[in-house]
Nucleic acid binder design. Structure first.
Lengths: 136, 136
DNA sequence: GTAACTGCAAAATATTTGCATCCTT
DNA sequence: AAGGATGCAAATATTTTGCAGTTAC
């Protein structure tokens, strides 16, 4: 789905910054941090706009955050069928120790884990780190 | 292992703040954030000391960080056999949506995931969210 | 025209660093 | 006594908020 359509589909106004940020996600093979977007966007829009845009996109289910051990916040595109507030990005995330690229491995599904008595599972995230296919 | 021994064992000076912070981890059933420690420690030591202590403990392998989707940094005690720089806290983390307590489920081991061609796995983290045994 | 979005300034938070002092060994 | 650890102040970095001006519909 093209940037413009995604925005329209989610009832958002179609603006330059939103289109550009979406393009960045489409163009990137991995996940992006706030800082990445700031760098790659040729400084054409404000820091604050990036914060607000990312927040809006997360709320609408256009992108999702990825948990990381080192406290950085990463964002990646959700698959088309993610609804607002109803994510089911059940895929594994892979972070490369060398190039730091973060991949959404869409084809690897989250394995089942049996929890102890009394725990009810709602969402499950798997983050694997190691060496990616480009860095070997 | 008792706080004092842990410190001695890792070649760290035995100080009030380090002992107290370790006690907090031992007393807590879940993981702690920097802010939790600041609150629960009856403000007896400095913010900066907490930052430095947590960093030291992570370096020594006494505690480990837990990845979270919402950008908060959580810390929890490593098992005794974690060596410095050589963590193998291969357990599942569970975050309760209601009380926000984060558990290290030591008895649930990380399931195996088969990655696509070319990806080499070094470390794997599983974070499950849902409802914990106390909140049902 | 109206509501939504952006940019700028500033406030609020969070984290890091330097240095003098104090404590542990 | 010497090295390590802490506290305070201050520098940085990060994120949030308010508001006026601009843009999309």
């Amino acid at each position: 789905m093209h940037s413009t359509e995604i925005l329209k589909h989610n009832g958002l106004s179609i603006t330059e910054s939103r289109k550009q940020i979406l393009e960045l996600f489409h163009a990137s093979k991995g996940a992006l941090a706030h800082a990445d977007i700031e760098k790659r966007s040729s400084a054409s829009f404000d820091r604050v706009t990036i914060y607000r845009t990312l927040q809006t996109f997360v709320e609408k289910g256009i992108i999702h955050t990825i948990p990381t051990v080192d406290n950085s916040v990463l964002y990646a595109l959700c698959k088309d069928d993610c609804k607002a507030g109803h994510h089911h990005d059940n895929h594994v995330h892979f972070i490369c120790d060398i190039c730091s690229t973060t991949y959404c491995l869409d084809n690897v599904s989250i394995p089942n884990v049996s929890l102890p008595e009394g725990f009810i599972q709602k969402q499950s995230d798997v983050v694997i780190s190691g060496i990616c296919k480009n860095c070997r």
